[in-house]
Structures are given as structure tokens and as C-alpha cells.
Amino acid sequence: MNLNYLFSLLAVTVLFLVPWVGVDILGKKELFGLIIPYFAVLIFIGGFIHRIIHWAQSPVPFRIPTTCGQGQSLSWIKQNKIDNPSTTMGVILRMILEIVCFRSLFRNIRLEYREGKHISYEWEKWLWLGALAFHWSFFVIIIRHMRFFTEPVPFFIKALEDLDGFLQIGLPGIFISGFVLLAAVLYLFFRRIYIHQVRYISLASDYFPLFLIMAIAISGIIMRYFTKVDIISVKEMTMGLVTFHPVVKEGVHTIVYVHLFLVCVLIAYFPFSKLMHSGGIFMSPTRNLANTTRVKRHINPWNYPVPVHTYEAYESEFREKMKEAGLPVEKE
């Protein structure tokens, strides 16, 4: 066993049990239903802003054009305007494609030895596919959950729910995104364990969010399809939170508190973790800067005034001696 994932698994198991004990045995419904969610949201927003502002204080002296295409050059050489942009518009397009399609991951290749010592570069698209499935299904799930936080529920949430549940399998009908998320997160986890190079560089902080998201997905699936909960009471509680009329309802199953608590842990942990790549992607210098290294002059922000001794000053200092020695001078 690897200590990193053992430790994370243990942490998530404990977090899973905390609300069971807290709500079922100690009866602290206000704590788990009201106080912790509010604190988690505050930590999330405050921490996120703090982290971004901290990052914004790092100077980026020069453009880092990690190019994936032909840069701007002579008029008869065709420029790749998205992969090597020289304008803001190009950068915006590159960022959008990076964020919604993960193009950097798509470029992933694997080096392999084939037939003895022949190096070959393999297409490796599984990570990209897994990441895409994971992020998009998570996004859909978050939007879908807004039905618990809005009244009346806006049309786009309803439309997304209908699309997500269009298979109409079982009752309550299955939402595809929930199962895609669980499958994707399991894939990302097993990938980390199975590929030994990836396992070697994986830390507890890599496994912890995976286990946490797994636990959230599993508790959500259990709640919707197996134990069933009184959804009207749940919505009354969640609406109470967002309208600042907090209430605690009796008869809400403990699994709801477990699910809520795990989500609170996730968003409170968010600003301190690798999950901040969601904000960090916007601040990646290799993606968000136009390749204008030659067109514009970029001045290093940490330049300080250096005392220089110009030739003019040098000559003035030694003019007489230079003349005596017969050296040519510029000014007589």
C-alpha cells in the first residue's frame, strides 16, 4: 500500500463519518445544516480571491511563447493565429479553446521504445478524454443542483435536466452526468495508481480530492436512486440557506447531511489545493500572452537603476592621459 492514497482514503472515510455521528448521535443539525455551509462558502470565495490576488502580484517579465504553430512572420508565411497568437483576439480564442476543450491535454503523447531501441511517440488521448468527461459532467451536475437553490427554477436549468435525463430509465429517471462523473473519477484514480510513473509523482493532495469527489458522487447517487429522501424538505433547507432564512427540517435523512458536509469540505478545501487550477488557468503565462516578443518591447519589471559608466564619462575622466599616450579621442 502507498501511504499517500491510504492517508487520503482514511481522511475521506473520517469525513464521511463525521456528519453521521454529528447529526445522528449528537443531533447537531444546525451545525451541519446551516453553520458549516455558510462558513464553507465564505472560505471558498474569500480564499479564491486571496489566492488570485496573490498570484497577480507575481511579475511576468517576458512573453513565454510556448508555440504550437507558426508565429507571426513575413507576409507570405502563414501564421497559426490561434496556436501562436499575436493579437488579443487570438489569445482569447486560445484561452476559450483551452478551457472548454483542454487542448494542452489533447497534445499529450507517450514516449515508447518499439522494436528494440526505436523511440516512438504514441497518441495518448485517454487522459484528455477522462478529464473532459470529468469536468463537463461535474459542470452539468453543479448547474443541475441549482434547482435546489432557485425558486422559480430558471428555464435553462430545467432544459439541462431534461437533456441530462433524456434516457428516461427508471424512476426517478437517471441523470447521465452523475454516472459519467463517477466513472471518470474512478478512471482518473486508477490511472494514477496503475501507471507507475504517475503513481510515483502523486501525493496525498492528488488523491484526496479524487476520493472526496468519489464520496460526493456516491452519496448523491445513493440519495437519489436508493435510500430516497424527502426532497421538498431538502429544498426548503437549501432555499433557506440562499435566501438567508435558514431553517432546519426534521425528517431529513442523514445522508443529505453527509452529502452536504462533503461538498462543504470540498469547497472550503478548494482555495488551498490543486483545485485552484480553475482560477489558475486564466493566469497561465504560456497561454494568456500574445507572442509579441519581437513586435513590442517588454521591460523586466524588476529592473532597478544600474550605475553605468558610459564611454563619454570614461573619456572625460582620462582625456588628458589618453592624449599624452597618443590615443584617439572623440572630443578634443
Binding site: I45, I49, M146, I232, V242, H245
Partner: peptide
């Protein structure tokens, strides 16, 4: 950066401003 953060805050606080603090009791 501040524009980006403003958009972030507006998006994540969506449920708070969408309901404008109106209580929504169960039917």
C-alpha cells in the same frame, strides 16, 4: 484580474442574488 474576480463572484453568488433573499417556503 479584478474584472475576472468580479465575474467569478457574480457567478458563484448566483443563487444568493437570483432569489433576492425572498423566502421560499415549501408548498
Amino acid at each position: 484580474v479584478l474584472a475576472g474576480l468580479t465575474i467569478f463572484v457574480i457567478i458563484v453568488t448566483f443563487p444568493f442574488w437570483y432569489n433576492m433573499g425572498k423566502a421560499a417556503p415549501a408548498p
